[in-house]
Design a protein around this nucleic acid. Structure first.
Lengths: 116, 116
DNA sequence: CTCATTAGTTACTTATATGTTACCAGTTAA
DNA sequence: TTAACTGGTAACATATAAGTAACTAATGAG
């Protein structure tokens, strides 16, 4: 995880949810319910499956998501926000709102998975 | 800055304030007023002056802080949160509170520049 | 004259994050 | 019997972030 020499709580939070992909993964799981690995991969075309797998494993190790693996062939694995992960919702909301404010109107995207 | 292929607002926010040092710098400037470069350097013993300088420049280029350079020798430079930077306060607060929740009690630090 | 002062920069090195490609296993359908 | 399905992993390559050491310039103090 991100180094944190001064043991700053904000840096710690960045370590848990920062980076290029973790916010997107978390937002995909925000609406609740289990989501399959393959569905996440389809929803995020630009992330490689290796990185997706790696990020999911880190989120699971950090206790933010739960992983359900069914012993079937072909395999089926589902992910879901944990109780601890749900406490992130107001944090993600604050970061999301601020990021919207800072968005260049000319480059404005339509990507808005936080719908409610 | 951090790549953001899906143009996600949360990732954008991480790009502005993420990393190992930016949260700490911003928190140091939260209480308002101008702070000299050297004072920041003393308050953050583990950051090299080169990196501190670089991070301050990025924050300034992003419009989050203001830089006042007085033409004196030896030089004097002061930094201050901009109006745009002040809009970060609720975001940092949310991230700070969450980070405190996640802190391992055994490793609990005493570092708490958000005093009020 | 010489040294300390301040806020940097330049060149170079190391660490961390992210990415590409190829490969695997057990079952079902063609 | 051959291919497709799924959720990975291993080996390798690159990109970004962070760190180190040496150096600069104008003035004042000793």
């Amino acid at each position: 995880m991100l180094q944190n020499p001064e043991n700053c709580a904000v840096v710690r939070t960045v370590g848990y949810i920062g980076g290029k992909w973790k916010p997107i993964i978390l937002i995909r799981l925000l609406n609740g319910g289990k989501v399959r690995f393959g569905k996440l991969a389809v929803q995020m075309p630009d992330i490689s499956r290796k990185i997706l797998s790696q990020q999911l494993k880190e989120l699971e190790e950090d206790g933010l998501i739960l992983r359900y693996s069914y012993m079937e062939k072909p395999p089926r694995v589902e992910y879901e926000l944990s109780e601890s992960g749900k406490t992130l919702i107001p944090v993600l909301k604050a970061m999301y709102d601020w990021g919207i404010q800072m968005e260049d109107p000319a480059t404005r995207g339509t990507w808005d998975p936080i719908v409610k």
